[in-house]
Nucleic acid binder design. Structure first.
Lengths: 107, 107
DNA sequence: TTGACATGTGACCATTTGGTCACCTATCAT
DNA sequence: ATGATAGGTGACCAAATGGTCACATGTCAA
């Protein structure tokens, strides 16, 4: 419930969705690498990565002086299953089919 | 692209998700009816409904002095198909199965 | 027709958000 | 050891956001 909110809010920013996209194509990127693909200082990127990390969408590991960023798709999967799925299911039950059939017949 | 952003931003607020939930269980509600379920003045609710409408998640029809609100799940379906689906697919290809098999064997 | 009801608008306000910068620490390579 | 490299912190700022209110319009019912 409250956890979902962090995820939704994290997904609400285009820069953050871009970052997730980059990490989707390849994980384990460093901050400076991600920064180089954006028109923004590394401080801005850091803040966005922090938001993603707080939402559990990104996990990190320190390697020497570098910080590697990995994508964690589980939270997206969760809001999908618990929330989005409900709105996206196509209703193709026998009942709605029947209803549509009746409406067509009466027209 | 730009359209997606409106949808993601609209979904980022818990009050708005609550409104979508209410409209999911039953459509065609009026502003005052929706307001009565929230700890907020009708002005706040109006603004939220406006955001949902701009994102295409809610469509409205005027009926006398009332304004009826209807859920439109299509935008959710679109961001699901174009964006979320990619992150939520379970990878169960023969290749990853083989990889897991090898890892188990070597353990 | 007159009052109650449903909604709309614009000003206004506090808080959050997205972004920058100055400065600082830790690590690597020479 | 020393400079270059990678990252971190806190202050700061402008703009967006979430919410309220005073007021105003249109519609229904007695």
């Amino acid at each position: 419930m409250h956890d979902d909110d962090l995820v939704f809010k994290a997904l609400a920013d285009p820069t953050r969705r871009f970052l997730l996209d980059r990490l989707f194509t390849r994980d384990g990127r460093t901050l400076t690498e991600l920064e180089s693909e954006l028109e923004m200082t590394r401080f801005g990127v850091m803040k966005h990565l922090r938001v993603l990390e707080d939402a559990g969408l990104v996990v990190t590991r320190k390697e020497g002086r570098e910080k590697l960023h990995f994508l964690n798709p589980v939270p997206i999967r969760l809001i999908h299953d618990r929330w989005i799925d409900k709105f996206t299911e196509r209703r193709v039950s026998a009942l709605t089919d029947l209803k549509r059939q009746l409406e067509e017949d009466s027209a």
